[in-house]
Design a protein around this nucleic acid. Sequence first.
RNA 1: GCCCGGGUGGUGAAAUGGUAGACACGAGGGACUUAAAAUCCCUUGGCCCGCGAGGGCCGUGUGGGUUCAAGUCCCACCCCGGGCACCA
Length: 954
Amino acid sequence: MAYEHTDIERKWREQWRKRGTYRVERDPARPKYYVLDMFPYPSGAGLHVGHPLGYIASDIVARHMRHRGFNVLHPMGYDSFGLPAEQYAIQTGQHPAKTTEENAARYRQQLDAIGFSFDWDREVRTSDPAFYKWTQWIFLQLFNSWYDPRADKARPIAELVARFERQGCQGQDADVLTGDTEEFIGPFTADEWKGFDERTRQMVLQHFRLAYLSDAWVNWCPALGTVLANDEVKDGVSERGGHPVERKRMPQWSLRITAYAQRLLDGLDGLDWSESIKEAQRNWIGRSEGATVRFPLGDDFIEVFTTRPDTLFGVSFLTLAPEHVLVPKFTTPDRRAEVEAYVATAKNRSERERQAEVDKVSGVFTGSYAKHPFTGADIPVWVGDYVLGGYGTGAVMAVPGGDQRDWRFAKHFGLPIIAVTEGADIDKEADERKDATICSEGFLKGLKVPQAITRAIEELERIGAGTGKVNFRLRDAAFGRQRYWGEPIPIYYKDDIPYPLPESALPLVLPEVDKFLPTESGEPPLARAKNWAYEGHPLETTTMPGWAGSSWYFLRYMDPHNAERFVAKEAIDHWGQVDLYIGGSEHATGHLLYFRFWTKFLHDLGLVPFDEPVKKLVNQGMVQGMSMMANVLASSRNGEEHYRLLALNNKVEGAFERNYPVDHVTFRDGRYWINEEGANRTRSISAFRDYYLDAPVIELKPVVEKMSKSKFNVVNPDDIIAKYGADTLRLYEMFLGPLEQSKPWDTHGIEGTFRFLRKFWNLFHAGAGPDQSVPSTHESAVASAKAGGGDPIHVSDDAATKAELKVLHATLKKVTEDIPKMSFNTCVSQFMIAVNELHTLKCNKRAVLEPLTIALSPFAPHIAEELWEKLGHREGIADAPWPTWEAEHLVEDSFSYPISFNGKTRLQLALPIGLSKDEVEAQVLADPEVLARLDGKAPKKVIVVPRRIVNIVV
RNA sequence: GCCCGGGUGGUGAAAUGGUAGACACGAGGGACUUAAAAUCCCUUGGCCCGCGAGGGCCGUGUGGGUUCAAGUCCCACCCCGGGCACCA
């Protein structure tokens, strides 16, 4: 009978659900394995064929490990808070919860159709109060913790308070872990602490809490009533709507991830992650060693960070960032107007812009002079937007002789350029070499750069003008969003001082609001809620960002229904770290860094026994779409002829004989783009051409680009499954190429994997019925399936031949070795080879087909399960032990040696396996053809690699 | 500019330093069929010689090198993709 994938797959989807095949319980008797996919956001667009790529790979590993006797955790859920649902809500008034519910249902339907072995009983959603109760709870732990530099870990804030009461804040404690914009808090004594009022105490503690409220620079858009991310701002206006955006200091919740910078950096070394992701994280954390230097100015000072204290004698001016807090103080009255004007424009430019426009030098003199700590010379203080407020101290000591940006600034404003290194041509450019010798006058003269750095730091520390310091590029993470659809932050305000909600008040459930927009006065949407208060005190109105829930969700899967704890200790102890995490590389520095940060924090509190969430990380490549571009010759109104590009997402042949939906035509990037899917109205291509282009087609060519709805090149897995089945889809996605690589999707290639499954099926059914050569109709297949799956298969219980066993074991070996290497494409190829060979051998032996079915089941679970049942098994295939390969079946009697002359293969010679090197050489040199080629000459050298090659050098 | 990937047939690709192009698509030819679909068989990197059996030369982005032997290792460069960047 024919391979009726639709019926088989429907049958097993139901059976697996009924039987609870993929439900998983903790089993201490077995070793555990945790396979996780990156948390998806259930978007309204549904899945395209690129999305399941990683899920299929992880499913294969999960199923494989289960066959190997592991207790496998393989869950799925939704990162269901997020912007798209909120935007949709703003536009339509539909509650985001409803949109989210619908989208999740659609996702589920699509995921189910692919036959994943997810344990859906463990599904979690970040927008579910039962889940975000614990996200809020972790936030409270962060709020109630500080980072103790002595222990190098987070500790309860109560310990810090006790410490202040005992000995105040001195030394190391006073070296507070400030966020990027906090003002410096000086040391204080225990008595001073006791004398502080509540407001001051809370303010001081904000400087230590790991979740803290502080004033931070944000891109504020008054028209939208919201804060925008850097990439939502272009040319000083919002990308959406073009409203003006200003840089503004606003109270913002932040997480002190900077406290973990060094540990986040160090932890990377032990991880089995791709080097590119680890590098991206290292760059993002951006550790640099150097020194802070204080330049006195009146009763105050300017502190800078530099990696080159050896160039101190080359300092000719200081530059402050426009947003630096001391700018107003150091501006002299005669300069005030000019400085204020400059600051007003400069600080409103986004950081992106300031960084992008390298050649535009701008700045202004404040009128003040600071004292050089070594020479006592007067150093003019400037303001320049090439200095960023958020990095280092927001001020630089400018060394035009040693730093190209300082050099450009000095050239532009005619400031002195002092040579700091020997051999520098400072008229042309700064000398940034790190192997130079210092030439500037002073005690560093003649030293090499590294020695000079050490010496300069010693001197700075000796005279109390500075200290050696490690600086990080990493900044604290903004944690508040002026949005509705996120976790409410469990904070209330009493006399404007933030206090945490008690644990008993969690979850703080997202309130109903009349509109999902900011209030008229610019408050976030939550300010619209009635009675948004705790015991009469107003509640925080910002919500958490998208990455909050995803920073710890992997723990919740271990114990998803626990109402008492975020996860039970026994569950964490059993499941431990994620053994394999699969997802896109776009999360390199966002999610994956926060994920590690939260895990380390929870580890510090003794809540989890490990401090890295993921042992092995694999990034799947992108599946790209294929767009067809047509070059057409078009005439414009003024009569000029020029080429236009027209894109189609279909094959070239006959493209212009079909009808195209006009509403799927867009003009973008100077091109027309058409899509032929989903038409309401259609217009023939000739009419289309007349209407739009009036032009003949000149050329058609395919273009590979991102698969996306906006490019009309999306391929929906549902369509593929309807035609070929989920097993074919799974195999084909894996067959496309290495998992990590990006590759274009071409539906045409799928025929090969479909044919393979049919051939595999036919191995069991050849000669099984009178009509085997004639495929049965769809109706008859349904009927026989209803009869109880008792369709005849035709397998023999005879012993397998040597040749058959060789095919089987070669395949088992390849697949067993390649799955752990994530090399799934080669597995599929091997299955194809096996089936082709068994077909040639006319093999229908149970002894061969049964183990092969188990090996195939992680890749194509439906067909495997169906055949498994037909082979007479009552238990499902999921727990069938993985068949092991045996080397004895792979030994050959002879090996066909490629005989090469000077490295070029010229002939083949079959020789028995057991021969020694010398015997091989003797036999080869006795061969008539070899002799003929040697033409009487003696070979210079003969290389014999047993079972590999013979190379004759002449 | 810096840091990661990657360049192999018409296409997706394979290849512990050891027969480059497995496997699959597409294409061409053939069988079966009234026909189509499905299935099966053969050919398929390029060029050249030969009626044929067969044989030769070239070939893994480019140029060098190491080696008996290089897609694979080393050096220099070019191109494509991704990330980061006035980071002091």
